[in-house]
Design a protein around this nucleic acid. Sequence first.
DNA 1: GGCTCTTGAATTCGTCGTACCTAATGGGTT
DNA 2: AACCCATTAGGTACGACGAATTCAAGAGCC
Lengths: 233, 233
Amino acid sequence: MTTPGRGLHGHVLDTLGPAITAGEYPPGSVLRTDELAQRFDVSRSVMREAVRVLESMHLVESRRRVGVTVRPKAEWNVYDPQVIRWRLEGADRPHQLRSLTVLRSAIEPVAAALAAKHATAEQCAELTECALGMVANSRGHKLEEYLVHDVAFHRVILTASGNEMFARLGDVVAEVLAGRTHHEVMFEDPDPAAVTLHVQLAEAVREGDADRAEKLTREITVGALQELDILAP
Amino acid sequence: MTTPGRGLHGHVLDTLGPAITAGEYPPGSVLRTDELAQRFDVSRSVMREAVRVLESMHLVESRRRVGVTVRPKAEWNVYDPQVIRWRLEGADRPHQLRSLTVLRSAIEPVAAALAAKHATAEQCAELTECALGMVANSRGHKLEEYLVHDVAFHRVILTASGNEMFARLGDVVAEVLAGRTHHEVMFEDPDPAAVTLHVQLAEAVREGDADRAEKLTREITVGALQELDILAP
DNA sequence: GGCTCTTGAATTCGTCGTACCTAATGGGTT
DNA sequence: AACCCATTAGGTACGACGAATTCAAGAGCC
């Protein structure tokens, strides 16, 4: 997605990473560097670099005399954008999408409240622009154009919060929104109520109304949760 | 903390990682693999593996004919536990601690609400046990013992939420709580009100009262924010 | 003359292969 | 049961070549 296969070691990762995160190698499975190097037809140096990266993601652990063992899922660095992407590619996709949507529902309302307090005039303008773009593409099956503005909108909110941890979730939100448009629900035009909520949210942030911004965002995320049938009715 | 310096490449990372996250090499700075290998007195193979890891954390970018360039802070994988630890070690510590505390204030209330719905009997028991441990060590300068139970308490909440993304924040919360006890505020016994809140939270979760669990956790995190003077009035 | 375009040399990472070291494991011996 | 040693797979080092990109010098053009 971002930087596909930069070099041989990248190609190896693009194959091994998804395989591991998809659970093709159960936790405790043992891989050997030389065997892998042979399988991918690369030198041991390249394979070692790939293993180091997987190790830094806590997907595997390398031990002498044993080999490269796959770590249990609970130890993976599930916030690593690369890991998230791999999991979204594989069979884990629905589950991952739910986890991330719940995460969004926790983060975004707080981020929106902070954005209402810290957003610059520029960011407010961007926000309004994005909201307008959403309105303009909310009818007539212009889902792709809508998505672009939707993603941009949420990115601005997260960035304007002034919290770097929130800001870095922009990519995650982008993946979730894109996933929703491309693979999951949403075959028709977006819910008009959701569009209105975004417009109102832009308003609230512009006016510095943190409380209203938070509540509006909570409504937006509740909608996202309902789309995935996460909330009990 | 977790796995300090496993091998030469680990030692290099333990030095280079903190240096980069501390801002000793401004964004755009260019390092060369061979020069680094010489400086750390390791082979190029080892240095290349270290660079690969830093690259997977988006701390640096390696390009031909140019070298290893440091990426701007906004692109770092700030959720990587290793990066968090490095930043907590360095001059960035106060800022990082604030960011993480705000993150906690967003995540934990939602996690607590979910925990109230999903916690097993075992987890409820653990929670009560932890709360009792906090009470028992809340007076008489037994800060270390208190910390242990506090960390365990929040870990159980995050795990019991049933959301893997929340669960993986256990380490982050542990770092924040430990940081508070060891380096920041909290020179005397913990706030009795906070202890009571934890006891009540354990109650609420046991009773499956999601709404109360969320509100109680919000009070706890507000307290944490106030300790760092993040909240205005 | 000043400008652009092309060409080529220099540089640094990328990859490979080999050789040797180290340590953990498992089995065999006492 | 305790100990020792051979096996094994990763860890490290070094040297060589390949590939891509930058930068500058020079040719061609306006």
